[in-house]
Simulated assay, not measured.
Amino acid sequence: MNLLSRFEQAHLQAKSNRWLRYFTVFCRIALAAGFLPSGFVKIAGERFTSLSVNHPMGHYLEALHETSYYYTFIGIVQVTAAILLLIPRTATLGAVLYFPIILNICILSLAVRFEGSLLSSPLMVLANTYLLFWDYDKLKFILPFNRSPHDAFLRQQTRSTKFPMAFFARSAAAVFILVLIITNLFEIQPHNTIPDCEIQCKDNGNPQACIDFCNCIHVQGRPIEKCLEAYEKAKKK
C-alpha cells in the first residue's frame, strides 16, 4: 500500500469517528460565526472598525470602505461562505470559498501587525485547513491524484465511538505552538492606540526609539515599514 493509499485509509477512519464529526461541525460553526458579523457590517456599508486612519490597518480598512460596491461584494462573499459552511450539503464548497479569504486576512494581519486578528486569523486558517482535509474524499476528484483501489473497501468501515485522544493532543499542541510563535513573533507592534503602543516601551531596550515608533505610526501616520526602518536605525545608535 503506497503513501496515498495509507493516507486515504486514515482519512476514511477519521471520517467514521463520531468525535471527529462533532469537531468538524464545531469548526464549521466557529468559522461561520467569524464571518457573519463582519460580512453583514460590510453589506450594510458601515466601517468595520474604529481604528484611526493613521494606523496601518485602519488606513487599509478606510480605503477599502471607500471602494463602493467592492466593499459590499466582500461582505456578500463572506456571508455566503459562512452560510455554505452551515449547510451540510454545501459545507465543502463553503470551506473552499472561505480559505482564500481567511488566508488573505491572515497575511494582512501579519503584514501590518494588527493585534485584532493577529492570533485569531492564523487559528482560523488552521481550522479551515482541517476542514479541507476532512473533505478530501470530495476534493480529490479535482486534484491530480489517481483514485485509490481501496476506496470501495474503506467505505465499508463502521462508525467508531472511540475518543481520538492522539488527534486532540496533537491539535492542542499545534494550537499551543502557533500561539507561542505568534505572540513572540514581533519585537514591537503598533497596537490599536498610541497609549497601548507606548506601554510596550517600558520593557524595550531603547524606550525612546519605541516611543518614536509609536508616534511615527499614530501621529505621523507613516507606513509601518518606514516606521520599522526608523526604529531599527534608532536602536543601532
Rank of each mutant, 00 (worst) to 15 (best):
A14F: 09
E187C: 01
K233H: 03
L132H: 07
A44L: 15
F186C: 04
T158S: 13
R18W: 15
H150F: 15
F114C: 04
R28M: 07
K42R: 14
I101W: 02
L131G: 04
L86F: 10
A81K: 03
I181G: 03
H59G: 07
P56M: 07
H11Q: 15
K236V: 13
K42H: 10
C27V: 12
I177F: 14
I101Y: 01
A30N: 09
T72P: 01
G58M: 07
G45A: 04
I188H: 07
T49F: 11
S120H: 00
A174T: 11
P88T: 04
I217S: 04
M124P: 00
S50I: 01
P37V: 05
G45W: 06
G205C: 08
L84T: 07
K15M: 15
L154M: 15
H65C: 04
V79T: 07
A14K: 10
P207C: 12
W19K: 08
W134A: 06
Y98K: 00
C210N: 04
Q156S: 03
M57S: 11
R159C: 02
Q9T: 09
L131I: 06
Y98H: 03
F213H: 03
I29W: 05
A127I: 02
G221L: 09
N146P: 02
A173M: 13
C227E: 06
C197G: 06
M124C: 07
K235R: 14
M57E: 11
A82E: 01
S16R: 15
R222A: 14
L154I: 09
M1P: 00
L185K: 10
V175D: 03
I199D: 12
A95C: 01
N215G: 04
C106F: 14
L84M: 15
I199W: 10
A234D: 14
G94T: 02
L228M: 12
F145T: 12
N184E: 06
Q208V: 12
P122W: 06
H11K: 10
V41P: 01
Y22I: 11
M57F: 15
Y130Q: 06
E62S: 10
P144M: 08
Q9V: 08
S52Y: 05
L20K: 04
K235W: 09
E229L: 09
L84R: 05
A32H: 02
T67C: 10
V179W: 05
R6F: 10
C210W: 08
E198C: 02
R113M: 11
S16F: 07
L103F: 11
K235V: 12
R222G: 02
C216G: 06
K235Y: 11
I43M: 14
C197D: 06
I74N: 01
A166L: 14
I87L: 13
Q13M: 13
P144W: 11
N146E: 13
V175N: 03
V41F: 12
L31M: 12
N2D: 13
